[in-house]
């Protein structure tokens, strides 16, 4: 396992080095250009995330909300790529965009007819909600800038999936078991909740 870990990280490092070499040797691409290209792509991903998030919150049609949620989640997956974890980005696409969004679409289909008119929002409530979330946002940004973040003194550079699996089965096996139990209870609870009410109402 150690060997495999090392080979993974080695190939990763080689890939990075190879990328740099290609960008240095390329005729059209110098490292500055690739850097600015990555920067532009990053801000496009951030724009997609926030566009999707505002689309998920502001329109009153619930179908637009779900589509915006899918867009925002895909944008967050792109952010995970920039944060160095391909595996988590893949899991984000698989679990959030693939499973949760689809189940929300099912709930919309099963619950209310879409052609009914949605009641308008009350202005004071919206204003108070905006004020509350703005206060929270400004507080969080203030904390970000006031704190001087210190990185850990010796940081390991093992980003491989093998290391995650190893950790999940040794040091963090409680996490693994607890999440399995939670998912089992959630599935049984969902079946019981949806099934019993059907029996009662019919």
């Amino acid at each position: 396992m150690e060997l495999r870990c090392r080979s993974h990280s080695q190939t990763r490092a080689e890939q990075v080095v190879g990328l740099k070499n290609v960008s240095q040797e390329g005729i059209f691409m110098n490292p500055l250009a690739t850097d600015s290209l990555a920067q532009i792509a990053f801000w496009i991903v951030v724009g997609l995330t926030f566009g999707g998030a505002s689309l998920a919150v502001f329109p009153r049609n619930i179908l637009y909300n779900v589509l915006g949620l899918a867009l925002a989640l895909a944008g967050v997956a792109g952010l995970y790529l920039y944060l160095g974890s391909f595996f988590i980005a893949l899991m984000q696409l698989l679990i959030y965009v693939g499973a949760i969004t689809i189940s929300i679409v099912f709930a919309i289909m099963l619950s209310r007819p879409l052609h009914l008119e949605v009641p308008r929002r009350e202005v004071p409530k919206v204003a108070m909600a905006i004020a509350a979330s703005l206060v929270f946002f400004l507080g969080a940004v203030g904390v970000c800038f006031k704190t001087s973040w210190v990185p850990a003194p010796d940081r390991s550079a093992d980003w491989s999936v093998t290391a995650i699996g190893h950790m999940l089965l040794t040091r963090y096996d409680l996490v693994f078991e607890v999440i399995s139990l939670v998912l089992l209870v959630a599935i049984i609870g969902a079946v019981v909740t949806a099934g019993f009410t059907r029996r009662l109402s019919s």
Binding site: A53, A129, A132, S133, L134, A140
Partner: peptide
Amino acid sequence: AALFSIGLLGVLQR
């Protein structure tokens, strides 16, 4: 923080 705030806004106003 911005994503969390947008979500908070949604929970409060919807």
